[in-house]
Amino acid sequence: MINLTNIEKVYRTSSIETLALNNINLNIRKGEFVSIMGPSGCGKSTLLNIMGLLDEPSKGTVELDGQRVSTYRDKELARLRNEKIGFIFQSFHLINDLSVVDNVEIPLLYRSTNGKPRQTYAKEALEKVGLSNRIKHFPKQLSGGQKQRVAIARAIVGQPEIILADEPTGNLDSAMGNEIMNILQTLNNEGATIIMVTHDENMAKRTHRLIRLFDGTQVQ
């Protein structure tokens, strides 16, 4: 499904060159639940951004469903991100001035989905994560765990094939972290391919496969 070959990512300024990823080779199969671990600054989020088509490698090839990503134009990449990939972030990235249901609808706005179906899909996604009783609330009225569930509902509202989760339990206590993992495992059981960055060994053990990075290099 996602194939990375000889991926290198270099960040350059006028005086400094930083090698963030070095010779990464990965194949993520459809339906897998994969975790990525490593110390801070080792390239985990950079790798996730490249797989999510948010960033380009300096060298190497990225293939999605057998097609080289480099062949796509910017508009095509934006469409792929919107239709095939759902993103979950550690710090939620909710819009405080929008209600819960309005936050969840955002990906559908970019698809020009009409208002009534859009709200129906958003409510269905919120029901899936156990927040159907909070649709009119605002983010400031929610706990951290509830905010993350809203973020998950937003990620899945368009029924993406791939979910990329960057430290989805990082800001939560262990009990709420386990609840979020239960939701992710349910989504994976229903067919979603999930790639999760985490610092938590216990969470990583609940996934199918663990990929370790150190200083931008894949550890065998």
Rank of each mutant, 00 (worst) to 15 (best):
I152M: 06
D102T: 00
Y121V: 00
S174L: 10
G170F: 07
I95Y: 00
V100Y: 01
N103K: 04
R81S: 11
L109E: 09
N189C: 04
F138Y: 15
P57D: 14
E124N: 03
M181K: 14
P160E: 04
S91K: 04
V62G: 07
A151N: 03
E63H: 04
R154Q: 02
T113A: 13
P160Q: 07
P107A: 09
K116R: 12
T169G: 05
N133F: 08
D102Y: 00
S99Y: 00
G66P: 05
K136R: 13
K59Q: 14
G86Q: 00
L164K: 06
L94Q: 00
I156N: 02
Q67E: 13
G66T: 11
L164I: 09
T186A: 11
G144I: 08
E105V: 01
K140F: 05
L187M: 11
G115A: 12
S70P: 11
L80T: 14
E127G: 13
A125T: 06
P57C: 14
A165L: 06
S58Y: 05
E179A: 13
G144A: 09
T61W: 02
N114R: 10
K84N: 12
N114T: 11
R111G: 04
Y121W: 02
S70Q: 15
D65Q: 08
Q67M: 13
Q146S: 07
Q159C: 03
S112Y: 11
L187W: 06
Q185Y: 08
Q146R: 03
D65H: 15
G60I: 14
Q67Y: 09
M181W: 09
K136A: 10
Q67P: 02
I156T: 02
P107L: 06
S58L: 05
I156A: 01
A175M: 10
L64C: 02
A155I: 02
L80E: 08
P117Q: 07
R118W: 03
L164W: 07
N114G: 13
R79Q: 10
F87H: 01
R149A: 14
M176E: 15
R111N: 05
T113S: 07
E179H: 13
N96M: 01
E124I: 06
Q185W: 08
F87T: 03
G130K: 03
E105A: 10
H93Q: 12
N171T: 04
G145N: 08
S91P: 01
E76H: 10
K84S: 13
Q141V: 02
T113E: 13
G170S: 05
I88N: 04
D74W: 12
E83P: 08
D173W: 09
I85N: 05
N133Q: 12
Y72R: 13
Y110P: 02
T169M: 05
I95E: 01
I106R: 03
R149V: 12
I88W: 10
G145A: 10
R68V: 08
I180R: 09
L94S: 00
R81V: 12
